[in-house]
Design a protein around this nucleic acid. Structure first.
Lengths: 279, 279
DNA sequence: AGTACTTCGTGAATCCCTTCACGAAGTCGT
DNA sequence: ACGACTTCGTGAAGGGATTCACGAAGTACT
């Protein structure tokens, strides 16, 4: 970028911004905020990278996407970066959010200070369960789901957070979209269908744990029985049918393995190609 | 493919399994479980793809990684796939998990049935706050953090979930790792440093919302204040007032961050789904 | 001024993942 | 049995993102 230096040249990457970069900007924002509060005014890509857990090359490329400008030989000014990133992420204007489903997770989210601190205002909490309506969580009162559309209209809500059971998620999603919401954060363990133009991000807790499980399995190659068992010939265990329990249970030929008894300190672990050092 | 055919031999992709594929396996698992419960015995890659919100090509490539075997002209047998995927993810043996920090989010997670249903056993809930110790959440009782190491040892815990405030996360992480945990799911909004061989996945709620905010900003090009003052109004974070940096402060506090001696993680975000339901 | 050193910005190479396209292998209907 | 049809498996092409490497541009110090 050949910006003539500091004059706050167009700070929007406008046209294209790599999705991967977008995903890291909030991270930088958090780190920079902390640095700023510590009284730091300047930071190098190396330092920032270390604090954010990424490589310095990534940091530089990401920041260059912002049409950003550091000072060679010195680094970046924390204050300026904060402004640029905030602007790029659209955090300079408050955004109203509506949260549907105030169960355990919904409560946790509603009480999570991180949202408000970053310019997200919870316009309303909504729940279908009458017994939960009226309850006060934080500074907001739970409202009946009937008012969903009205709230979205009144507060100019464009982001919806779904914390309902999986079964209700799609229906809620449809209502949100119909009412004008164009971005959805889905915590329900189900895939949502939305019309084009609507963004959906999902957070699946069990899914994350399963990914970890995969890597665990790679580290400690099942000490138990040999593999021949599973998927032996074509004839799968006739009883392979899942015995359910509550909507979604996978438990099948579960075999509990005897205590691996390995607590050995060694185990160099083959540095799993996965995370290596920075991925 | 490297392997010639592999109808039933070792079903583990063994050597290499694309990280992207690993991230989708739990998704397929969920969909397949639902299908199985509906009495479906066979699915085509098209059907499975539609249900999982991905493309059929992806499904086929992913499943072929398992050394899997569908029947051409027919599809895959649900039961067999369930077995294969479960085995691949290491879900055929129970895994013990310890959850540290039983605040709002911790409560939500502890009560989340999805874990237990998939073979994850919460060996213990731990909290530093004495007032929370003894409380019963679900079937588990909150124990003092002092017992962390003992629990990990006794229950062969290899996965830890951190739901503490950001400030305590690194310390907890260190203790977990020292005690033998090799996989960590971090909900605290901070970057954890871990030694090589330990996997960390992070889930940052505010971060997800900020990514959505970015896309929102692209959809509705800031109707508010013109480009004049970049981020005048609300600052990015608390106390991050950047304006007061009256020009001197030449103190080059370059070395801001403490010894970044260890490796830092950077896991890919949880899956995303933009726009159309099926990409 | 000049030399040494730091750090940004960025093309180029590389790696990983996705998408495409098509042959192979099986089923179904007559 | 045989042809039409379906669907898997998989090279190969295409895109993105990460990493590498190095020139450019600034500071620090003598």
């Amino acid at each position: 970028m050949r910006q003539p230096r500091r004059g706050a040249g167009r700070l929007s990457g406008r046209s294209s911004m790599p999705e991967a970069t977008v995903a890291r900007l909030p991270l930088y924002l958090r780190v920079l905020t902390a640095l700023g509060e510590s009284g730091v005014h300047t930071v190098s890509s190396d330092t920032l990278a270390a604090a954010a857990g990424v490589t310095s090359a990534k940091v530089r490329k990401d920041l260059s996407q912002l049409g950003s400008f550091g000072t060679r030989g010195v680094g970046y000014e924390v204050g300026i970066l904060l402004e640029c990133i905030s602007a790029e992420l659209g955090l300079t204007e408050d955004r109203s959010v509506v949260l549907v489903g105030v169960g355990n997770l919904g409560h946790a989210l509603a009480g999570y200070g991180g949202f408000h601190a970053r310019g997200f205002r919870i316009a309303a909490l909504v729940d279908a369960d009458p017994s939960r309506v009226g309850e006060r969580v934080g500074e907001v009162v739970v409202r009946p789901v009937d008012e969903l559309e009205a709230v979205i209209e009144d507060c100019q809500v464009t982001i919806g957070v779904i914390c309902t059971p999986a079964a209700a998620a799609q229906h809620v999603c449809d209502r949100l979209v119909a009412a004008g919401v164009t971005s959805i954060l889905n915590f329900a363990p189900t895939v949502l269908s939305v019309p084009e133009g609507v963004d959906v991000r999902k957070v699946d807790l069990a899914l994350e744990l399963q990914i970890l499980s995969f890597h665990e399995a790679r580290k400690r190659p099942s000490p138990g029985p040999p593999a021949g068992a599973v998927a032996g010939g074509r004839g799968p265990g006739p009883g392979a049918t899942v015995d359910d329990e509550a909507g979604e249970v996978v438990r099948m030929t579960r075999r509990v393995v005897p205590p691996p008894s390995r607590v050995a300190p060694d185990v160099p672990l083959p540095a799993v190609a996965h995370g290596g050092d920075s991925e």
